[in-house]
């Protein structure tokens, strides 16, 4: 067993330990508070924990399957996220071909470019080629009603759901001296820190939350949850330095950046939901809502994390 897979195994065992602990707490809460009737908060918590088991196992299987597995997993996430996003935006019949192109051409090409490790095109394919070609496809139908809004929304959907999301598996393409064949652990680091930050903000908020931080955007987010979640996720990130090419201090700093981007990403996506008049992006994940509800913080932190690591650590 090489060091990458033994580290991965340690990590997976650790996560399973956390999930078993969470499931045990969920079980006790259920026995105490909803033994003889449903309790909304506890049932939602248990549904969330159950969904976490499924998500962790799915990601674990993808990691074992290697590069192809990770790419397929994130391509599927992009597909499901894009489907949730496009469902909520203003599209008209004139956009039909542009939308078909987004799902069946742009998305597969973006992930193919990762597979082929064509970084030069990967980095500009959606911001340049799709950006210019999609409105051309839409304009050919001659429908000018809300035209700017329509093309802007489709481009935003592609940037968030495909371009930004694809920067998670893009971490596999980096070449870091002394870190060869361990890149999958960078994905683990990013995903663990950002998701733990979300979970810890939720836990700190539930335990000590008093002051609402953004009442207009997300009534459940509190200052106490934010501060507690960011600090504890940063410390956990620092303590995970051994799976990264970073020193403990660097790992903590990157974890801080990741959690801050994740937090503000969550706020931005909440504002979009408010604008569209919905509470959740969808119903894909029991207890959590849609896939974007779980992915919003990852999507905002992944490209920044990718570019910081690429600029300061990677040779490619």
């Amino acid at each position: 067993m090489n060091t990458a897979s033994s580290d991965l195994l340690t990590l997976v065992l650790g996560i399973f330990g956390v999930l078993i602990f969470a499931s045990a707490i969920g079980y006790v809460l259920q026995r105490r508070f909803s033994a003889d009737g449903p309790n909304g908060a506890v049932d939602n918590l248990n549904a969330r924990i159950k969904a976490w088991w499924v998500m962790v196992i799915l990601i674990g299987v993808a990691f074992i399957a290697g590069r192809a597995g990770v790419l397929i997993l994130f391509a599927f996430c992009s597909f499901a996220a894009l489907r949730e996003f496009i469902t909520l935006i203003n599209t008209r019949r004139a956009d039909h071909w542009a939308l078909a192109l987004a799902f069946f051409v742009v998305l597969p090409i973006q992930y193919y470019l990762l597979w082929a490790e064509e970084y030069g095109i990967f980095a500009i394919f959606i911001p340049v080629y799709a950006f210019l070609l999609m409105p051309i496809i839409s304009v050919l139908r001659g429908d000018t009603e809300r035209f700017l809004l329509r093309i802007a929304e489709v481009q935003w959907a592609l940037m968030i759901c495909v371009f930004c999301a694809s920067h998670v598996p893009a971490l596999l393409t980096l070449t870091i001296p002394g870190y060869e064949s361990r890149n999958v652990l960078l994905i683990a680091f990013l995903v663990i820190v950002v998701q733990l930050s979300d979970v810890l903000q939720y836990v700190w908020g539930k335990l000590f939350g008093r002051t609402k931080i953004a009442p207009n955007l997300s009534p459940s987010k509190t200052v106490e949850g934010f501060v507690g979640g960011v600090i504890s996720a940063t410390l956990i990130g620092a303590s995970l330095w051994w799976i990264t090419p970073f020193t403990p201090f660097q790992a903590g700093l990157l974890a801080l950046i990741i959690t801050l981007m994740g937090f503000f990403g969550g706020l931005v996506m909440s504002a979009v939901k408010r604008d569209r008049g919905v509470k959740d992006w969808g119903n894909l994940i029991e207890g959590h809502g849609g896939l974007i509800d779980r992915l919003d913080s990852v999507v905002f932190s992944a490209p920044i994390f990718f570019h910081i690591v690429r600029y300061w650590w990677s040779l490619s």
């Binding site: 894009l82 489907r83 949730e84 496009i86 469902t87 599209t91 039909h96 078909a100």
Partner: peptide, 18 residues
């Protein structure tokens, strides 16, 4: 709800929408 947006009249490729 929404199926008319998935495949409007005269189109042959369905758009994935919830």
């Amino acid at each position: 709800n929404n199926l008319n947006r998935v495949m409007p009249k005269g189109e042959i490729v369905p758009i994935p929408l919830i």
